[in-house]
Computed example of a mutant assay.
Amino acid sequence: MEGFIRALPKIELHLHIEGTLKPEMMLELAKRNQVSIPYQTIADVRAAYAFSDLSAFYALYSLGVSVLKTEQDFYDLTWAYIERCKEEHVLHTEISFDPQLHTRRGVAFGTVVNGISRALQEGCSTLEITSRLIMCFQRDLSQEEALETLQQAMPYKDSIIAVGLDSSEPGNPPDKFAQVFEKARQAGFLTVAHAGEDGPVDNIWHVLEQLQVARIDHGVRCSDDEKLVEHLVSKRIPLTVCPLSNVRLGVFSAMNEHNIADLLERGVCVTINSDDPAFFDGYMIDNFMAVANAFKLSKKDMANFSSNAIEASFLTSDEKAALRTRLQHYLDLNFRPII
């Protein structure tokens, strides 16, 4: 199974680029940009990455973001992730970024987008890894700030395919952002949103109805509402699930208690993703292996996660067909009858 998963063509749809900042790069960029951080060695940073709750994660995440200053920083961060995609047979990735984390501390919107986009373009031309870019609004900030961020994004519409909504759900209901999502749709952006992770199942209904999203990031609380699960199945509404992240942040106490295998069996368009892999001890292979080991799923089951991700992606029909062909070729090689 491990060999099968390592070479399996994969598609990642839920990845926060700021969450790929490894301890080594944090120290390197802090030194490059003369940013003071409370760590002197890689071992110190790694120890800090052993956080135990969501608040500690957010604090460390914010500290990491503080070392990102220049277009080259964002390029280097993104390029390191793209190289990891090549190693892990991730053929297509849809990367989220949080511009408000940067513009609020004086980094220009264009600096962020240009650095990320340059690495993505190079990844496509040199490594044949396709990508799309998703701009997320922080739900713990105001809709007014989100509207301002949407305006900042307008000159970069060719580089950004969708808008999203992330950060902590409690106290930040989806309807708080209904206006900005409507304006984003009118401007031609696709839409996604985090819901049903650290918030109730109702948040999933609300992002579907009030924000009219094309897919749900996380969405694991859907199992609390049978009618919702049936709706997700019948409408083929995708869930971009992040198994290791869910366990690390206490959404599930252990991987064998996760509902991802049950959702797959019931016909939900569920996918596997890494979320913030540098912080949650796992990129795509790690997440696939954790699920396979916890539930003793078959190779065909694991391949279904890739098939679902192709369907759920924001690629064109022709691009999806090309990925399906590559996936099917891989499966044909692995399931060829022995004569």
Rank of each mutant, 00 (worst) to 15 (best):
Gly164Ala: 15
Leu165Tyr: 11
Leu165Glu: 08
Asp166Phe: 15
Asp166Trp: 13
Ser167Gln: 06
Ser167Leu: 13
Ser168His: 12
Ser168Cys: 14
Glu169Pro: 06
Glu169Ile: 14
Glu169Met: 03
Pro170Cys: 11
Pro170Ala: 03
Pro170Tyr: 14
Gly171Trp: 10
Gly171Arg: 06
Asn172Gln: 04
Pro173Val: 03
Pro173Asp: 06
Pro173Thr: 03
Pro173Ala: 03
Pro174Leu: 15
Pro174Gly: 00
Pro174Asp: 02
Pro174Arg: 08
Asp175Ser: 12
Asp175Tyr: 13
Asp175Cys: 09
Asp175Ile: 14
Asp175Lys: 03
Lys176Asp: 04
Lys176Arg: 07
Lys176His: 08
Lys176Ser: 06
Lys176Pro: 01
Phe177Pro: 01
Ala178Asp: 03
Ala178Asn: 06
Ala178Tyr: 03
Ala178Thr: 11
Val180Glu: 02
Phe181Pro: 01
Phe181Cys: 06
Phe181Ile: 07
Glu182Leu: 10
Glu182His: 08
Glu182Ser: 11
Glu182Lys: 04
Lys183Met: 12
Lys183Glu: 05
Lys183Ser: 00
Ala184Val: 14
Ala184Pro: 07
Arg185His: 12
Arg185Glu: 08
Arg185Ile: 13
Gln186Phe: 15
Gln186Lys: 12
Gln186Ser: 09
Gln186His: 13
Ala187Met: 11
Ala187Arg: 04
Gly188Ile: 06
Gly188His: 02
Gly188Pro: 02
Phe189Met: 10
Leu190Gln: 13
Thr191Asp: 00
Thr191Leu: 08
Thr191Gly: 00
Thr191Trp: 13
Thr191Arg: 04
Val192Pro: 07
Val192Cys: 12
Ala193Phe: 10
Ala193Glu: 06
Ala193Asp: 03
His194Val: 09
His194Tyr: 05
His194Gln: 05
His194Leu: 02
His194Thr: 12
Ala195Gly: 12
Ala195Lys: 01
Ala195Trp: 06
Gly196Leu: 11
Gly196Lys: 10
